[in-house]
């Protein structure tokens, strides 16, 4: 998606006209904020998925956590969390990693069963994720698998924002010259730089909450509440 070719709201309008699935239709019909909307006026939803691997075509989504929020408030009461039954069997390695048990998964719903509700929660919100290269393709391909149509939407990537501030300028260049490791932009290490508390990682909802807090901290530190949404999304 190139920004000059077509705006996100034009894209949403076009998709709303053509999609067959009612949940997707509802999602796109709601529209997308204009690029100059101040970030303080944007309803967002922090999203995290735990997956069995990194390839959206071969691996499956194990759990999904979402935490709606704004710059002003993260309301825990609005959080949602689902454990999913993956179409492919779970490796024991990813079980220990994500702290989800076999019995939990045996009784769990398929992604299709929660999709309407997930889309409903995403409608009117800009997703905020840490490392969009996981959530974006997994979400798109999982929806395409179930409904025959994909989902593309703008996302705010807190890892990309972190990279912008931590991996640029003369300091980074100097570090590279002297062969020093660049500073880590993983979720936990990024939070650390803003004085955010340590949370137990690798739980989709805890990570979603951690991402929402990180984004608030990034805006408070590097931007202003009036910064337009176009500065953040990609």
């Amino acid at each position: 998606m190139t920004k000059n070719a077509i705006s996100w709201s034009e894209y949403y309008a076009a998709r709303a006209a053509e999609v067959q699935d009612s949940a997707l239709q509802h999602f796109f019909a709601h529209g997308c904020p204009e690029p100059d909307t101040p970030i303080q006026d944007i309803p967002m939803v922090a999203l995290d998925m735990e997956t069995t691997g990194l390839d959206s075509h071969r691996h499956a989504i194990v759990s999904v956590g979402i935490q709606p929020f704004t710059l002003d408030r993260i309301r825990l009461s609005e959080r949602r969390y689902w454990v999913l039954r993956p179409p492919r069997p779970l490796s024991s390695k990813s079980i220990t990693f994500h702290r989800i048990t076999h019995s939990e998964i045996a009784e769990a719903p398929d992604f299709n069963d929660i999709l309407d509700e997930l889309l409903n929660q995403l409608t009117g919100h800009i997703p905020v994720v840490h490392f969009a290269n996981i959530e974006r393709p997994f979400l798109d391909s999982a929806i395409k698998d179930r409904r025959g149509e994909g989902l593309r939407c703008p996302m705010i990537d807190t890892m990309a924002i972190e990279a912008r501030f931590e991996r640029r300028g003369w300091r980074t260049l100097w570090s590279r010259l002297v062969g020093r490791q660049p500073s880590s932009i993983r979720l936990h290490d990024s939070r650390n730089r803003y004085g955010l508390p340590v949370y137990q990682a690798h739980h989709a909802l805890t990570d979603a909450l951690a991402t929402a807090e990180l984004f608030q901290a990034q805006v408070a530190t590097h931007f202003s509440p009036d910064t337009p949404i176009s500065e953040f999304w990609g």
């Binding site: 309301r75 909450l209 901290a217 408070a220």
Partner: peptide, 8 residues
């Protein structure tokens, strides 16, 4: 019911 916000 906790609500959270970060303050610089």
């Amino acid at each position: 019911q906790v609500e959270i916000r970060y303050f610089k």
